[in-house]
């Protein structure tokens, strides 16, 4: 589904990713872990198309398409969605309008007309219940005045509505208390499907107690230094990152 090959990325002249390769297949949950500053967030930002990241070499393909040639919105329409670590506040744009505009953009890309209002409301109602959010959220401006936990739930809500093929979640656990974490994890787990890939970027193993990954990768100094199964996350939790850093330097 997603194939990243020997990706080199510089930000403001500084090389952050130095030859990262990664393959995510449909049905798999991948967790990318690593110490601060290793480039974890850079990967998902580059895939989403954020400005300021220069790909100096390497490729990213999604279902055979060259991702780097696609506009930001085309990437989303192709099925790649990024859940932000710090979701931006968008004053004046109501949540419900964002959801409707996004969903209808996706339908238009698939040659479908707008979803009829009753059907749309039924869908939204089910999804906000799943995220244990109040209907009043729909009327509020996107993320404006939301708590940290509410913002993260809102990101997952968008995923639940838009049903991406590849869900990328950047530090979705940061700043969450345990209750909010459970709700977010339940939401992500409900996205697990045979035809969907999930890429989690996280610093802490804690999240992975709730969302059990199939593959864990350790990102050190812009490269994947070690890959393994879910047990690798536990090992990192007890031993820290230093041993991987040393191993990769050796």
């Amino acid at each position: 589904m997603l194939e990243v090959k020997d990706l080199h990325v510089t930000v403001e002249g500084k090389e952050i990713l130095k030859g990262l390769s990664l393959t995510v297949n449909a049905g798999e949950v991948h967790a990318i872990m690593g110490p601060n500053g290793a480039g974890k967030s850079t990967l998902s930002a580059v895939i989403a198309g954020k400005d300021g990241y220069e790909v100096t070499s390497g490729t990213i393909t999604f279902e055979g398409q060259d991702v780097l040639e696609m506009e930001i919105e085309e990437r989303a329409l192709a099925g790649m969605l990024l859940g932000f670590q710090y979701p931006v506040e968008i004053p004046g744009v109501k949540n419900i309008y964002l959801l409707k505009a996004a969903l209808n953009a996706q339908r238009a890309a698939n040659g479908q007309g707008d979803m009829p209002a009753p059907e749309f409301m039924k869908l939204i109602k089910a999804k906000i219940a799943e995220m244990k959010m109040d209907a009043s959220f729909l009327q509020r401006a996107v993320n404006e005045g939301f708590s940290g936990g509410e913002k993260k739930r809102n990101e997952i809500l968008q995923m639940l509505v838009l049903q991406p093929k590849l869900a990328m979640l950047d530090e979705i656990d940061s700043g969450l208390d345990i209750d909010a974490m459970r709700i977010v994890a339940d939401g992500v787990n409900s996205l697990r499907a045979a035809d969907r890939g999930i890429l989690l970027v996280t610093h802490y193993q804690r999240l992975l107690d709730y969302i059990i990954p199939d593959h864990v990768h350790v990102l050190v100094d812009g490269r994947i230094a070690k890959s393994g199964g879910k047990e690798l996350a536990h090992e990192l939790e007890s031993r820290g990152y230093d041993w991987v850093v040393e191993e990769s330097a050796a």
């Binding site: 506009e71 990437r75 989303a76 990024l82 932000f84 968008i90 505009a101 953009a105 996706q106």
Partner: peptide, 8 residues
Amino acid sequence: FALRTRGI
């Protein structure tokens, strides 16, 4: 950017 990442 945030809106575009949602396909808008």
